[in-house]
């Protein structure tokens, strides 16, 4: 099953989403801040990244920019997850290089749909 990198600083959210993803059969690795996310995108080579936007060290937008700037990781799809249900965030995320965007609280079915779309997309 595909390996997902879940970047989330809130412990409960991380626990919850990881367990639900595990139960759906995904392999999940976790990072808790922006720097770790960039490092693990390199070392773990996940097939998809779920990225919270408000993160310590540097935020999700910055992390995404770095991941998308590195040649080894730039093809990994990134879905931005943010608590701010604002249209501005969506544009900001897409500008930073995110492939899709979802708002918290997570609706699992909707998120899974978006994940599957990106995972099934043929790599360029």
């Amino acid at each position: 099953m595909p390996k997902i990198l879940l970047v989330e600083d809130n412990e409960m959210n991380r626990d919850m989403l990881s367990r639900r993803l595990l139960r759906k059969g995904y392999e999940v690795v976790m990072a808790t801040d922006g720097a770790q996310a960039v490092a693990m995108a390199q070392s773990e080579a996940p097939e998809l990244i779920l990225m919270d936007m408000s993160l310590p060290v540097f935020d999700g937008w910055e992390a995404t920019r770095r991941i998308k700037a590195a040649p080894e990781t730039k093809t990994i799809p990134v879905i931005a997850l943010t608590a701010h249900a604002m249209a501005g965030d969506r544009e900001k995320s897409l500008e930073a290089g995110c492939d899709d965007y979802d708002t918290k609280p997570i609706e699992l079915e909707r998120l899974l749909g978006k994940m599957e779309t990106l995972l099934n997309r043929k790599p360029l």
């Binding site: 809130n10 409960m12 959210n13 919850m16 989403l17 367990r19 639900r20 139960r23 608590a83 918290k104 609280p105 997570i106 699992l108």
Partner: peptide, 17 residues
């Protein structure tokens, strides 16, 4: 919203389990 998200999320998760 943060704790509420947890409540919603965990209850959903428990429901699935």
């Amino acid at each position: 919203r943060t704790p509420l998200n947890a409540i919603i999320g965990y209850s959903e998760m428990l429901e699935e389990e």
